[in-house]
Design a protein around this nucleic acid. Structure first.
Length: 483
RNA sequence: GGGAGUGUAGCUCAGUCGGUAGAGCAACGCACUUUUAAUGCGUAGGUCUUGGGUUCGAAUCCCAACACUCUCACCA
């Protein structure tokens, strides 16, 4: 279909638009003051008070025309409210009233009352058209079901499917609570570069862009870690950042190429401090946003009740794969059984492959996995008691990695060595040495605990949404090729 | 990138053995001042994702492309 060609529906709506203009009315409205959220109007309604008035604005999502009386359901960001348009109350405006239709945005004011059937209703004595809709809205009962269209036209999805707006409101509330919680504990929010000349702090393929006047290639950041640690060097003691990371990798139910990460650093702390903080923060959120501290997620019932399990990496490996972490022969045998191509992989990588293949699917309730093999943790301080292991934990919920934390490595010599050391079998390693970060460490970084929490995934487990695309307003999609 | 599935009216979906397409909602017309997915009667609406092929004949069978979903791979 060519773009010039407009549908019969759009043509019909254009005619109504013209008819509204002919009445001398601007079909696109303007400032509209004094309107109240539908939710609030319903909340303050009193049974036998005849003097109540209300004024609301929103989109018409249902319309029942009974001749000289029209019932309309208006939806705004807070919910819906019924408006009754009666010819006897609106005789002067009846010409306009008969021209409005599903999808239009209107304002209405009048006495607040109830209908015979008990529905709280604004009996309008004044109606204002605020925006004429030229497009046909989706089916009123099923809404917009086509997932592709829901993501491409989120601006329709948000009002056509009633559960969508509350979900994104909840996301906003959760993020606000995280900020409130952290600020309450003395953390300072900062913003560090999203465009970096060296994409460091994680092992992932970056997106590349170019700055013209500096004639310089830049990477969209894969993590803020190395910049936040520079702030520790600078003397900030408790910092956090909530912002986007970008990773040039595959998409899935759990992966969007741009995703929101909360990273925080606390000077003089360690990974045990981070563990307590993680448990307290997420428990606080679960208590606030989840009924009975539980969430149904797919076929899993997640229980956020404390205390959360804290188990060693080696312990979980033993529990679910049957292998002792020190018995590399048995682990390689297990890897073969699992179909992992372990030839040419370093031991630590094979162990981690087996771990991921056997353990992850069992981690449903919040679980801290502690003490990772040091070889796969280049930014982490090793355990004093056993330098083969690093003071790192990952926290899992519903088989997903939600958080990752370290006792941060602050020895510049060890850090430099780790940057140089490449593990065979790992596709991406720290691509380029960040010399300036090493310089920063040489000035002295206080010992610290650091934590990263994947915000999108956290929203998923707190709301029961099983696809990251349901908690991201505009997830990345392929372009539709237009002829 | 691999595998499986899906793509039909503006939307939600049927479509049997291969015989040129159906419903509900929305739209248009008429009626209706207490509806709740309002109702009743009537009208109109389709390049069956796109391009090839098989066939007398394709929404239906085959091939390819495109998009989406699930899944695997990738993903400290």
């Amino acid at each position: 279909m060519s773009e010039q060609e407009i549908s019969q529906f759009e043509r019909q709506r254009q005619e109504k638009l013209s008819a509204i203009k002919e009445l001398g009315i601007d079909p696109y409205g303007g400032r509209y003051e004094g309107s109240e959220a539908a939710f609030d109007v319903k909340g303050r309604f009193k049974e036998d008070d005849q003097t109540q008035r209300a004024k609301s604005a929103g989109r018409i999502v249902l319309l029942r025309d009974i001749g000289k009386l029209i019932f309309i359901t208006l939806r705004d960001w807070s919910g819906t409210i019924q408006v009754g348009l009666s010819k006897s109350l609106l005789s002067g405006q009846w010409g306009l009233v008969k021209l409005i239709e599903l999808g239009d945005i209107i304002g209405a004011a009048g006495q607040l009352g109830k209908t015979k059937t008990g529905e709280i209703t604004i009996w309008a004595d004044e109606v204002t058209i605020l925006s004429k809709s030229l497009m046909q809205p989706p089916e009123k009962f099923h809404g917009l079901a086509d997932v592709d269209m829901r993501y491409r036209q989120r601006y329709v999805d948000l009002w056509a499917n009633p559960e969508v707006m509350p979900l994104f409101k909840k996301r906003s509330d959760i993020v606000a609570c995280i900020r409130e919680f952290l600020r309450g504990r003395g953390f300072m929010e900062v913003e560090t570069p999203m465009m970096q000349s060296i994409a460091g702090g994680a092992a992932a393929k970056p997106f590349i862009t170019h700055h013209n006047s500096l004639d310089m290639d830049l990477y969209l950041r894969i993590a803020p870690e190395l910049f936040l640690k520079r702030l520790l060097v600078g003397g900030m003691e408790k910092v956090f950042e909530i912002n986007r990371n970008f990773r040039n990798e595959g998409l899935s139910r759990r992966h969007n190429p741009e995703f929101t990460m909360m990273e925080l650093y606390q000077a003089y702390g360690d990974y045990n401090v981070m563990m307590d903080l993680t448990e307290e923060l997420i428990s606080f959120l679960a208590g606030k946003f989840c009924e009975n501290n539980q969430v149904q997620f797919d076929d899993m019932k997640i229980d956020f009740g404390r205390p959360w399990r804290r188990a060693k990496y080696s312990e979980l490996l033993k529990e679910y794969s049957g292998c002792d972490i020190n018995d590399i022969v048995a682990i390689r045998k297990k890897a073969k059984e699992l179909g992992i191509d372990e030839m040419g992989m370093d031991d630590a990588v094979v162990i981690n492959e087996v771990f991921e293949a056997t353990v992850e699917d069992n981690l449903i309730n919040p679980t801290f996995v502690m003490d990772y093999p040091a070889a796969i943790c280049p930014l982490t301080k090793r355990k004093k008691s056993d330098p083969n292991y690093a003071e790192r934990f990952e926290m899992y919920i519903a088989k997903m990695e939600l958080a990752n934390a370290y006792t941060e490595l602050n020895d510049p010599a060890v850090q430099e060595e780790n940057f140089h050391h490449q593990l065979r079998g790992q596709h991406d390693t720290m691509a380029k040495m960040d010399e300036d970060f090493i310089t920063a460490l040489k000035y002295g970084m206080p010992p610290a605990g650091g934590l990263g929490i994947g915000i999108d995934r956290l929203i998923m487990v707190l709301t029961g949404a099983t696809s990251i695309r349901d908690v991201v307003l505009f997830p990345l999609l392929k372009n539709v090729v237009r002829e």
